[in-house]
Amino acid sequence: MKNMTAGNHCTVTEFILAGLSEKPELQMPLFLLFIGIYVVTAAGNLGMIALIVLSSHLHNPMYYFLSSLSFIDFCQSTVVTPKMLVNFVTEKNLISYTECMTQLYFFIIFGVAECYMLAAMAYDRYVAICSPLLYSVTMSYHIYSSLIAGVYIFSVICASVHTGFMIRIQFCKLDVINHYFCDLLPLLKLAHSNTYINELLILIFDILIIFVPTLTIITSYIFIIDSILSLQSTQGRSKAFSTCSSHILAVGIYFGSVAFMYLQPSSVKSMDQGKVSSVFYTTVVPMLNPMIYSLRNKDVTVALKKILQRKTFM
């Protein structure tokens, strides 16, 4: 049932997920912790999307990008967390081959989309602060909708290439994936066939997925900071910095944890360390982003108060 060998070909129908911890006494506390995180993540991100849809004064490119980021964060968390929660309360953490490849596919889509959406948001802030008079022209409906569509199209291409080449890999026994979800690196460690192309693809896409958005963000903020420092008004500087601070914080947390997972030399890389950084960008960051953007953004807090007042008087 679990593996069949025919000539040089072998088919695996299941894997075992090692999970976050193998200690039985930690399973229930971890289950309660992560179910709490998931509920807050779902409420925060879906609430942010609903708030942007319902508040007409939030209908501008900055908040359309933010609603897309909230959608990505909710989906990223949903791809990983429910299966992890099931694993905390089951004796054997089995995942079927099909389920594993599906999880990998959607994990890559939303992981790549997060990187590029944060880069698009940095470009949006650059235009808003450095060319405010041209903002409505530069960030027209056609431009920002094309940027958002481009993010998703590129993400689907990345996921399709990675997953397509992963499906070609042979797995010849019921192996343990040393992770709490199906990710590229832990899966490649179990391969029974040549993984050179897969490793080359990871290197190429790492450059495209991490360095290109990071370079875009850094370049945008060099111009933004230069523009802010040239402002004469202290109030103007403070307002400009406040519109960027939420984004800078979100970028720092997300890219920091992703880089820790994927850019360490193999000699110092530990999958247990990798699990900790993965928890940040798959569960903690999606929970924090709505809080970061709502607590540090006056437009969002004003919109929320108006919605709540409207509900109170109805």
Rank of each mutant, 00 (worst) to 15 (best):
M1N: 08
K2M: 05
M4P: 00
G7W: 13
N8H: 09
V12I: 08
V12F: 06
T13F: 15
T13S: 11
F15P: 02
I16Y: 07
A18R: 11
A18C: 06
P24I: 01
M28I: 14
M28L: 10
M28P: 00
L30R: 03
F34Y: 08
Y38V: 02
N45K: 13
G47Q: 09
I49W: 13
I52K: 06
V53R: 15
L58R: 01
P61S: 00
F65K: 03
S68G: 15
S70V: 09
D73G: 11
C75D: 01
K83M: 14
K83G: 06
N87L: 04
F88I: 15
V89H: 13
E91T: 10
K92I: 05
L94P: 01
Y97K: 05
T102R: 11
L104S: 12
I108P: 04
A113C: 04
E114S: 12
L118D: 06
A120M: 10
A120V: 01
Y126R: 14
A128E: 03
S131A: 15
P132N: 11
L133E: 14
T138D: 15
I143S: 15
S145W: 11
L147I: 09
I148S: 08
G150P: 10
G150A: 03
I153K: 15
S155G: 05
V156E: 01
I157D: 11
A159L: 10
S160H: 07
S160C: 03
M166W: 04
R168V: 07
K173G: 03
L174N: 02
D175N: 09
I177Q: 03
I177N: 01
L184W: 06
L184P: 07
H192D: 05
N194H: 05
Y196A: 08
I202G: 02
I202P: 00
I204T: 03
D206Q: 06
I207W: 07
I207A: 09
L208W: 03
I209V: 13
T216W: 13
I222P: 07
I225E: 06
D226H: 15
S227A: 14
I228H: 14
L229W: 06
S230F: 02
L231M: 14
Q232S: 07
Q235L: 09
S238Y: 01
F241M: 04
F241D: 01
S245P: 13
S246P: 00
I248A: 06
L249S: 08
I253E: 00
F255C: 02
G256I: 00
G256P: 04
P265Y: 02
S266V: 06
S267H: 12
Y281H: 13
M287L: 13
P290R: 14
P290T: 14
Y293Q: 09
R296T: 14
K298Y: 12
D299T: 06
V300M: 14
A303T: 07
K305T: 10
Q309T: 15
T312F: 07
F313C: 12
